[in-house]
């Protein structure tokens, strides 16, 4: 296993870290889109998160990460496992640039087809990412047909393969994490809207923060193992928080007043559709769970609103006013009312 830069050693970037943690707590949030400059630590954060996700209970050896006792249809045919329960690290799968469609959705196993004349399914990245995270760096450079395909699967939670005489369907429920640099071109609105949360990262502008980033990175590069050891306690604490929050989230109460406030906010900023409202509430609930509280408060809404809504505002592409500012203003007005 590669040594990765510890999540808890990431300086500042609080919004990005929080968004990733929320997605880890409630996987139904719909993923996270991270916009930011080059070298602002997007990839580092995702890798770091991967290292501290609580492990999954799986059927040992299953290539779709099926839960013990409930193997999926494809699993029965493809995996030749004993059905014994085991544990596996939660998958965080990279979709590298240049990946071909057959590797993404899965395809005919060429080797077995050529040598044995067998029609066997070779699962792809979507299978590997089931019940975990799928990370796409530079989403805006991904080929359009792959983007469409991913959106479709992310929406339905199921990967349907109809190619090369194969007809296979398997669960592919993953948290989509995308990153991109807005300078390299925009994302299509349909794509943007599919992400539950959207955060904007910049390189820290406080000198003290920048110095700290450089020092930690330098220390990590010199001796990764020692550096990771140094941060192990903090990372473990974060892992425990995620796990505890996952267990608690079902019991979190959302008072009616807070629900109403959420609806009012969405109307006030003109966020399209119900998806924004739903994400706002779910993410607020995840936040309350993460912080060990029993009920969602207005303060939670306030903290979550920018990341849940900023990419859903109805506006002209050249609107001067930043979305975040619009949300903040709406929040202030609601509070005053």
């Amino acid at each position: 296993m590669r040594v990765v830069f510890p999540f808890s050693a990431i300086v500042a970037q609080d919004e990005m870290k929080l968004a990733l943690l929320l997605a880890a707590v409630d996987r139904t949030l719909g993923g996270v889109m991270v916009f930011g400059d080059r070298g602002s630590g997007k990839t580092t954060a995702v890798r770091g998160l991967a290292a501290l996700l609580p492990p999954l209970k799986v059927i040992a050896g299953c290539r779709f990460n099926c839960e013990p006792g409930t193997p999926c249809e494809a699993c029965v045919g493809v995996c030749r496992h004993t059905g014994k329960a085991g544990e596996a690290p939660a998958p965080v799968v990279d979709l590298p640039l240049g990946a071909t469609e057959d590797r993404v959705v899965g395809a005919l196993d060429l080797e077995r087809a050529l040598t044995l004349g067998e029609k066997a399914f070779e699962p792809g990245l979507l299978a590997r990412a089931n019940r975990g995270f799928l990370y796409i760096d530079e989403v805006n450079l991904l080929e359009d047909h792959l983007v469409d395909l991913l959106l479709d699967v992310a929406q339905s939670g199921e990967n349907v393969v109809e190619r090369e005489g194969l007809s296979i369907r398997h669960p592919a429920r993953f948290v989509l994490v995308g990153s991109g640099n807005p300078e390299e071109g925009e994302l299509r609105p349909q794509l943007l809207d599919r992400f539950g949360l959207s955060v904007e990262v910049t390189t820290p502008d406080r000198l003290a923060d920048r110095v700290e980033v450089v020092k930690r990175r330098d220390a990590f590069d010199r001796d990764p193992a020692a550096f990771v050891e140094l941060w192990k306690a903090k990372d473990t604490a974060v892992r425990r928080r995620i796990k505890a929050a996952q267990g608690r989230i079902g019991d979190i109460v959302v008072p009616d007043a807070v629900l109403e406030q959420g609806s009012r906010l969405c109307m006030a900023v003109g966020a399209d559709g119900l998806r924004g409202e739903l994400t706002l509430l779910r993410a607020s609930r995840a936040l309350a769970a993460l912080e060990g509280r029993e009920a969602v408060t207005d303060a939670d809404l306030r903290k979550i609103a920018p990341m849940a809504l900023r990419h859903r505002l109805r506006r002209g592409p050249l609107d001067e006013q930043a979305s975040t500012a619009r949300i903040d203003r709406a929040l202030d007005e609601l509070k005053a009312a």
């Binding site: 990279d94 979709l95 590298p96 240049g98 990946a99 071909t100 057959d102 590797r103 993404v104 395809a107 005919l108 196993d109 060429l110 080797e111 070779e122 792809g124 990245l125």
Partner: peptide
């Protein structure tokens, strides 16, 4: 290089 092409991973 993460290679995910032509059936190779």
């Amino acid at each position: 290089i993460s290679l995910e092409r032509d059936g190779m991973a």
